[in-house]
Amino acid sequence: MTREIQVTFDCADPAALAAFWAEVLGYHLQPPPGDFESWDAALEAFGVPREEWNSRSAILPTDGGGPRVFFQRVPEGKTAKNRVHLDVRAAPGLQGDERMAALETECTRLEALGATRAYRIEPAPPLETGFITMHDPEGNEFCLD
């Protein structure tokens, strides 16, 4: 049986990190439940204390073709390298200089959103096609692949 998955990020600022990853992945913020016009209105109606309003957030694929991504506030900061990371497929089907140029373009776009570049690995056929490793605004590693 195939199972649906959700990717979860522990973080300090769920709203900000959700907004960042929505831009990276072409996702959108999960809308509020029912007839509520905003999450603030829903949380207020549910009696959630204001200090908990940014304790979680989620984004959904715009086309329905991917996992839900959930962001939950945790008290501790990131202390070590991720054991699991996302590979953002920014240059599928491209090779060599064309591939690396597409990855550089996406890297520049994501830096403007708050990501930072860690390092670049050059193509070395037949096994290495080249990629750029980056950090999101809270330091989580991901690759442009």
Results as ranks from 00 to 15, higher is better:
residue 80 A to Q: 10
residue 80 A to D: 09
residue 80 A to F: 04
residue 81 K to N: 09
residue 81 K to C: 01
residue 81 K to F: 00
residue 82 N to T: 03
residue 82 N to Y: 05
residue 82 N to C: 10
residue 82 N to S: 11
residue 82 N to M: 04
residue 83 R to E: 10
residue 83 R to Q: 12
residue 83 R to W: 04
residue 83 R to V: 09
residue 84 V to G: 07
residue 84 V to H: 11
residue 84 V to S: 10
residue 84 V to D: 02
residue 84 V to F: 06
residue 85 H to K: 07
residue 86 L to K: 04
residue 86 L to W: 00
residue 86 L to F: 02
residue 86 L to M: 08
residue 87 D to N: 10
residue 87 D to L: 03
residue 87 D to F: 12
residue 88 V to D: 09
residue 88 V to K: 08
residue 88 V to E: 04
residue 88 V to R: 10
residue 88 V to G: 13
residue 89 R to L: 07
residue 89 R to K: 12
residue 89 R to T: 12
residue 89 R to N: 08
residue 89 R to V: 06
residue 90 A to P: 01
residue 90 A to T: 11
residue 91 A to P: 00
residue 91 A to S: 11
residue 91 A to D: 03
residue 92 P to F: 07
residue 92 P to A: 09
residue 92 P to Y: 10
residue 93 G to E: 02
residue 93 G to W: 04
residue 93 G to S: 08
residue 93 G to K: 03
residue 94 L to A: 15
residue 94 L to V: 01
residue 94 L to N: 05
residue 94 L to I: 02
residue 94 L to F: 06
residue 94 L to P: 03
residue 95 Q to G: 14
residue 95 Q to N: 12
residue 95 Q to Y: 06
residue 95 Q to K: 15
residue 95 Q to P: 00
residue 96 G to K: 06
residue 96 G to Y: 00
residue 96 G to T: 09
residue 97 D to G: 12
residue 98 E to W: 01
residue 98 E to R: 15
residue 99 R to D: 05
residue 99 R to T: 05
residue 99 R to Q: 07
residue 100 M to D: 13
residue 100 M to I: 01
residue 100 M to P: 02
residue 100 M to E: 09
residue 100 M to V: 02
residue 101 A to S: 14
residue 101 A to E: 14
residue 101 A to Y: 03
residue 101 A to V: 03
residue 102 A to E: 06
residue 102 A to Y: 00
residue 102 A to G: 11
residue 102 A to S: 05
residue 103 L to Y: 02
residue 103 L to Q: 14
residue 104 E to P: 00
residue 104 E to R: 15
residue 104 E to S: 14
residue 104 E to W: 08
residue 105 T to I: 01
residue 105 T to R: 15
residue 105 T to M: 06
residue 106 E to R: 15
residue 106 E to K: 12
residue 106 E to I: 01
residue 106 E to G: 11
residue 106 E to H: 13
residue 107 C to T: 05
residue 107 C to E: 14
residue 107 C to Q: 13
residue 107 C to M: 13
residue 108 T to D: 15
residue 108 T to G: 10
residue 108 T to L: 08
residue 109 R to F: 00
residue 109 R to M: 04
residue 109 R to Y: 01
residue 109 R to I: 00
